[in-house]
Amino acid sequence: NRMHLVCPMNTSPHVNPHKSGHEVWEEFSHSFTPAVREVVEFAKKIPGFRDLSQHDQVSLLKAGTFEVLVVRFASLFDVKDRTVTFLGGKKYSVDTLRAMGAGDLLNSMFDFSEKLINLGLSEEEMSLFTAVVLVSADRSGIENVNSVEALQETLIRAVRSLVTKNHPNESAIFTKLLLKLPDLRSLNNMHSEELLAFKVH
């Protein structure tokens, strides 16, 4: 009987012990649904995304929503104060969340958020990078890999061009940014394992 939900996409990590597992899950789902809808709205605005087959649009969103949310909500992880702000607006320290059962994923999220924020990207750069995260041709279940790959390459070229223009003296930024992609995959896998543990409980 797990009593805490340590994901910041929740309003609070505290779970009402009188609620059933199903009710807890419904409440959590209600909490993260608006953020997922925002990811879908963002995807719709990526030039070319709506031209992909409906099947591939759904597959990309299913596989990449978590990673997009990690990028969009990196600022919830305050590296300096070692706190996490939940959607309800309250901050919780790492120690508190650890005591509630948070594991390695929490540390990895802090590491990722710190490195991403330290790149000092503009809103436009971050937005284009987020599009690259979402449009990845190697996600499972893609039926028209060539179309997704072509769109991904266009988006990568756009990010490179923008980052090179905005940071002419920092040639490594684009490389560092691309290296965030495998980091996100790794976080996604860890997150799936945590979800499995949650469902099993």
Binding site: V36, V40, V58, L61, T65
Partner: peptide, 27 residues
């Protein structure tokens, strides 16, 4: 647990959000 998105109910939310505009369009 090969498809965490489906287990989360994500696919439903995604499909509805993707198709939402079509569904809301008046006949």
């Amino acid at each position: 647990f090969s498809d965490p998105a489906s287990n989360l109910g994500l696919e439903d939310i995604i499909r509805k959000a993707l198709m939402g505009n079509l569904e809301e369009r008046p006949e």
